[in-house]
Computed example of a mutant assay.
Amino acid sequence: MSLVDLAFDRAAVAAWHDDINSGCLFNAASVRGVQAARVLFSPRSSVAPQLWLQLRIGRRRYMYRKAVMYFVGAPFGWRVRHVNRKAPSTTGSKHKASQRLREAGLPVPQGRIFTRDEIDAALDYFRSLGCEACVKPDRGLMGEAIVPRIGEVSQFRSAFLSATEKYERIVVEESVAGEVIRYMVVAGKVVAVRLDRPASVVGDGVSTIAELAERRNAETRSANLPVWNEMPLDGEAERILALDGLSMASRLPEGKRAFLRATSNIPTGGDGIGNPEGVHPSYAQSVLKAVAAIPDLALTAVDVMVADYRQPATLENHWFLDLNSAPGIANFHFPREGEPSDVAGHIMDWLLAGGPR
């Protein structure tokens, strides 16, 4: 399916280069004849007004900016509510979300939460895991300060202290392996699926990994799409390469892939692959159970680590990593590979049908 088939206007979206998620939703609103415009708005009196996309549907106004959505309107006066109501108080904390899913009998990595001054206790827990660990902020965004595949005490200490420079509470959990599948869920229905592959390069038999990475980054820059990000060529890239016996100077055989990150986040150079073939439908069923375990969660993206997505889901072969109450949608419209999905259209159709109750 092409972007044209999805009634998706690239030029219209490009005009929203500073907020391409809003551009996608604006395009979907325009196609459906919904009144849409940018206006100054603030969800709280303590926050200075900024430009938000406003959608008027019936007696409601929907306000959208950089993947965050509120709705305004009530029978008696005006009141601003998050489109997911109280769910962000749970999904905003990776620890709380994992606890809720564990209580619902769903698979999550084994882990604990520590404050920034509990590094000794965190080190003891890391040693007790007996496997590679992952350190991540409890309330981090876009993959910031997440470090998986930690096997040495010195690496753990460095990752933990680095995370505490900005965050108060840090989650330490087992590092699970597989591929990350992101499910977009709107009103209890899976509307899009994407495989997120960590930053990587593919060998040509001649070039070094550094040369391949620079070439890849040049292609990303030339595309001039804010949803595609360059691969950071830093110490973490060197660490991940070293785990596989490689370095920036290594020359890969033709067709061999090397990873420069263990996280699959798009902001750290990951590649979104739209509608990957062969994903077993049982994972979507598991995802819907996870969403149902968190009250009010109507608009979300769910990240699942899957050992082999072609095999049926069991409690031992997939783990929930994150449920997002403000999910980006543009990467579903502009995947690096594979087919796009009209996520903005699905969201608009939900709002037109009544939206959140």
Rank of each mutant, 00 (worst) to 15 (best):
N265M: 11
I266W: 00
I266V: 14
T268P: 07
G270N: 07
G270P: 11
D271C: 12
D271Q: 12
G272F: 10
G274T: 13
G274K: 12
G274L: 10
N275I: 05
P276C: 11
E277D: 13
E277W: 11
V279L: 14
V279T: 06
H280R: 08
P281K: 01
P281C: 02
S282R: 04
Y283P: 04
A284N: 00
Q285G: 14
S286H: 12
S286Y: 05
V287C: 02
V287A: 01
K289N: 07
K289F: 09
V291C: 09
A292G: 03
A292V: 00
A293Y: 00
A293N: 01
A293L: 06
A293P: 04
P295A: 06
L297P: 00
L297V: 00
L297C: 03
A298K: 12
L299Q: 02
L299R: 03
T300C: 15
V302Q: 07
V302W: 08
D303G: 08
V304P: 06
V304G: 05
V306G: 02
V306D: 04
A307F: 05
D308K: 06
D308Q: 06
Y309S: 09
R310K: 14
Q311N: 06
P312W: 09
A313C: 14
T314K: 09
L315S: 15
L315Q: 15
E316K: 12
N317V: 10
